[in-house]
Design a protein around this nucleic acid. Structure first.
Lengths: 230, 230
DNA sequence: TCTTGTTAGATTGTCGACAATCTGATTGTC
DNA sequence: GACAATCAGATTGTCGACAATCTAACAAGA
């Protein structure tokens, strides 16, 4: 028996790579909400036939970031203020549940991973890499969901996160000014290390409320904005 | 302006029909967990080419009831006791949230719809149609999620429900005896009509706990059962 | 006997071409 | 000018065939 535990090898199908490419393009805000995805054009750009591209698009439709209308096309989802509100209010419930489940499972590995991700956020903040800043913040936030030892919860949270990441990216793009450089996660991390679970839950709720208000205001601003074609 | 509000016309693509067919086959327990889906065989049976079939399968993979391994095949998900446990514990949280949100929105239409679905359950119980019994019970249970006016919650609950329906169908199939004919939803419906929200939440939690214990015992029984091929 | 290399068969992944459908412009009619 | 019918172009949906990969059976060698 070998002492090395190998990780499963990466998917080597074109489909999987296409999914990753498209997802990234959408979640970083490179594609606008409502924008149509022209199959022929994209398949030519990627040097791939339409079959794996279409399969990839079906996956992203189910993932909730694309929407498809038969014989009309596949589009990036439109973001309404209500969508954001819905996602956030559910997120609060999931956070509370995740903290409750993670709490008794916290160990040394948890704390070091928490520290690692917190560092990543601070690094991205220093680099003023806004896209990475969103990514790392969501990864820090996601630790409690990964650690809660509930695969359905994790899956649900990841679906939610996809959209939130997209919303944040668009919001970030919209305002020209740089993101606040201060570290808003300091208290959150400290509470997760502490002994008062209720306090941690309360803070998580208030903490995400903060960014939420800003995001909602932004979304209300572009409500009923005409969707742009290819 | 017409006073009639038309429902959107049905999807007329083969893909959509294939999705419906496969989903039904899986959720009614006609396909065993772990079973492999042979693309050529299924496409010939359905008189369809592999392209729309494969796209349909990608959707169901994202929906969480199929799993795919590149160059190996696509399989019906395997059910472990932990999966059921995870799904149920999250379901409890979602139920509590759904009731909270639905509560102030209850109106006459809500109550009549509640009554209608309750009748459907009772009818299925009288007919001893176990498959329909599961369907109607889940639909009754789903009303609070549909009424809560939160699209993300509804979507999440529907994903969860898919699996639960599959679990219940398998459980039902396993035990030869008929399901208890008594109506276990009477109290639940009554509480949803009442004025004590906390009581309704409490009952919803205990109510699903009931069937849960039985399901869990069943799942533990077939743990590490060898998966059957095509 | 155990391990390694080879090979044939089956299955999945991908491709290019054709069919079905939609959209918008054009034409003809009142 | 307004409106319906027609048509061309573009785009999506589907098909059949080929390429890449896996599996299992078999043979060869230590």
């Amino acid at each position: 028996m070998s002492k090395v535990d190998f990780s499963p090898i990466a998917d080597t199908t074109r489909r999987a790579e296409i999914v990753a490419l498209l997802r990234r393009a959408i979640l970083t805000g490179q594609m606008e909400p409502g924008q149509k995805l022209n199959e022929l054009r994209i398949s030519e750009q990627m040097r791939v036939s339409r079959a794996p591209l279409r399969e990839a698009m079906r996956e992203l439709v189910q993932e909730g970031i694309l929407t498809s209308i038969p014989y009309a096309g596949t589009f990036v989802i439109n973001v309404t203020a209500k969508d954001i509100d819905d996602a956030y209010s559910l997120n609060k419930v999931l956070d509370e549940f995740a903290i409750e489940r993670t709490w008794p499972l916290r160990d040394q590995r948890f704390f070091s991973e928490l520290e690692r991700r917190h560092e990543a956020v601070k690094q991205a903040t220093r680099d003023i890499d806004t896209t990475r800043q969103i990514e790392t913040a969501l990864q820090l936030h996601g630790l409690i969901h990964e650690w809660a030892d509930n695969s359905v919860l994790l899956e649900t949270w990841q679906r939610l996160t996809s959209r939130l990441q997209m919303y944040f990216a668009l919001h970030q793009q919209a305002r020209k000014e740089a993101v606040p450089a201060e570290d808003v996660h300091e208290t959150y991390v400290a509470l997760l290390k502490g002994t008062d679970m209720r306090a941690a839950q309360r803070h998580a709720r208030e903490h995400i409320d903060l960014d939420f208000e800003e995001l909602l205001a932004y979304a209300r601003g572009l409500e009923q904005r005409p969707s742009k074609g290819a």
